[in-house]
Design a protein around this nucleic acid. Structure first.
Length: 542
RNA sequence: GGCGGGGUAGCUCAGCGGUAGAGCAGGGGAUUCAUAAGCCCUUGGUCGCAGGUUCGAUUCCUGCCCUCGCUACCA
């Protein structure tokens, strides 16, 4: 099955924080899950690089805008590589094909009669662009924006192109009202429904002047602003925000350069943060319909990472550095903890301390130690061949796996990433309790003394345990891709997927209890997740 | 202001008519295969406040308090 998923593109003005990459980690896990399931996956993530603000920042640092964003994008890519993020394309809005896609979308909406000339006026901050009335502080007759208190705002009026969002109110209401909701979680859909029902206003999609942005392809008189040699008429202005940024999802789908249109569109899943829900759940479908395209199949709105109750952000300065997390916990540890600490449908409190605690408790103590003790015991009693599991029906763990597997798959299908890992880690607990109740060390002693029945029992118990480790690793691999492969090698299996989760038999097939026979002896275990000292290097939030 | 969620153990949350649960954190114990991990037991709650319905309410109703989200053009 074809599966196209996207993250929002991040504003390329800084080094990314963990709160920025959280969404990318989640999307990456889904992409890997789908690849391992045998789907034909396209996973798109990237950066948003045009804006007056970027140009200003670049100028302040004495750089060209392009050099500036190149440098920031390199930071994103480096942090993402450390986290084993595996996009099929890392898209940049400065990419050449994206320019074509954005301009084509404008042309289509224009041809459809959904774009018209109007005038836009409002407070304008020379440092940051237009500000909304609610964003400014009144000072006498004038106003200043909170971010630059020393700078007086100007009241500016521009001739701009507007998109007829108001024409799509009924269709948006109908679309949002569908069951199941195309916007998840459902309460986010309800918020958007409320918004739409208040009545929709058109929004501006161009800015005057040739700033740092994509040239607007149409002149005020309706003629093309793009010459045959591709150069643009600067008097036509630039495309403003949404007809640039949102279009990246289409560019990444092959629009419009691919001969078959946009082969990957519509997207199966678009993951976004709650601050941009309105643009994705209201503006975006209307823009697509205007151009004769379909709305995305599903939009998933995740919550924030919080620090002491406040949203983590660069501007607040209360963020965590993803590189610090990877350095301390490893890529697998950092990915797992991010997905486990914060419910994917809600905000979640995160601190360095809670990260270390989660890592130690669930990865080092519960899971890592489970694999370690199981492999050690098995290797000691069965040095040549790993003991096979008993029939699923005859094994408590085999029975438990059936339920766990269903829960994990269902949760993944619903983008409930926290429930997915939650189900798997409950089985980790079950397996640890199983070890203590079966006491394989006692069985080993009896077996050594020549008790054949004890030896058979021991083989079954350890075989079940090893199988459980194999299956949990397999199903958790989208979160902990490297360690999962490492566990399989320890267990004498060969990991059949490549680094990004491609190839190999379908996950569901390998996920059958007893699906694989180890073809090599067990290896001596090394700690998969070394335990960390609680107070070890705490970069804290900065 | 309007609309919609919440307020339950130190923390994060589940439960939603018969006087409360999980995970983590804290305390104790028995063990030893294991990353001084795991396992067992356990301390913590007038279930926001005040009324009402009911034989009985954390669970239903009303009022109030507090809190969070949405309430248009920031990337």
């Amino acid at each position: 099955m074809r599966y196209y998923l996207t993250t929002a593109i991040a504003y390329a003005n800084n080094k990314p924080g963990l709160h920025t990459l959280y969404e990318v980690i989640g999307a990456d896990a889904i992409a890997r899950w789908r690849r391992m399931s045998g789907d034909d996956v396209r996973f798109l993530t990237g950066t948003d690089e045009y804006s007056v603000n970027i140009a200003t920042r670049a100028a302040e640092e004495g750089m060209s805008p392009q050099d500036f964003v190149d440098a920031k994008v390199a930071l994103f890519q480096s942090s993402e590589a450390r986290l084993l993020i595996s996009p099929d394309r890392f898209i940049r809005t400065t990419d050449a094909d994206h320019l074509l896609a954005a301009q084509e979308m404008v042309r289509r909406s224009h041809a459809a009669g959904d774009i018209y000339l109007g005038s836009y006026e409002g407070w304008y901050c020379p440092n940051e662009g237009f500000r909304t009335e609610t964003d400014v502080e009144r000072v006498g007759d004038g106003a200043v924006c909170p971010n630059h208190p020393g700078v007086a705002l100007e009241w500016l009026k521009e001739q701009n192109w507007f998109f007829k969002l108001s024409a799509y109110q009924a269709r948006l209401e109908a679309w949002l009202s569908q069951d199941p909701s195309p916007v998840q979680p459902a309460y986010r859909r309800n918020e958007m429904l409320g918004f739409v029902r208040q009545g929709l206003e058109d929004f501006s999609i161009s800015r005057e002047g040739a700033g740092w942005g994509i040239p607007f392809p149409i002149r005020a008189d309706g003629t093309s602003a793009i010459a045959h040699d591709g150069t643009a008429d600067p008097s036509a202005g630039t495309i403003y925000v949404w007809y640039d940024a949102l279009i990246n999802y289409l560019t990444g789908a092959g629009f419009p350069v691919s001969p078959d249109g946009a082969p990957w569109w519509p997207a199966d899943l678009q993951i976004i943060g709650k601050d941009i829900n309105r643009f994705h759940s209201v503006f975006w479908p209307a823009m697509l319909w205007s151009a004769g395209l379909e709305a995305p199949k599903q939009i998933w709105v995740h919550g924030w990472l919080l620090s002491s109750g406040e949203r983590m952000s660069k501007s607040r300065g209360n963020f965590l550095d993803p590189d610090d997390a990877v350095a301390a916990l490893g890529a697998d540890g950092a990915r797992f903890v991010a997905l486990r600490e914060v419910p994917f449908d809600r905000d979640g409190e995160v601190s360095w301390d809670s990260i270390i605690r989660r890592y130690n408790s669930e990865l080092a103590n519960d899971f890592g130690n489970l694999v370690n003790r199981a492999v050690t015991m098995a290797q000691r009693s069965f040095p040549d061949t790993a003991p096979p599991p008993r029939a699923a029906a005859a094994s408590p763990l085999g029975t438990a796996w059936a339920a766990t597997r269903t829960r994990a798959s269902d949760a993944m299908g619903q983008v409930a990433l926290h429930e997915w890992l939650g189900a798997l880690w409950e089985l980790v607990g079950t397996a640890n309790r199983f070890v203590d109740s079966e006491k394989p060390w006692e069985l080993a002693k009896a077996a050594k003394d020549g008790d054949a029945a004890a030896r058979e029992q021991l083989s079954g118990v350890l075989g079940d345990l090893l199988e459980t480790c194999r299956l949990i690793s397999l199903y958790a691999a989208p979160a902990i891709p490297r360690v999962a492969a490492q566990v399989w090698e320890l267990l004498g299996h060969r990991w059949p997927y490549d680094e990004d989760g491609h190839g190999g038999p379908a996950l569901e097939k390998l996920g059958e209890w007893g699906a694989c026979v180890a073809d090599r002896p067990l290896s001596s275990p090394v700690p998969l997740f070394p335990r960390l000292e609680r107070d070890e290097q705490s970069p804290a939030t900065r």
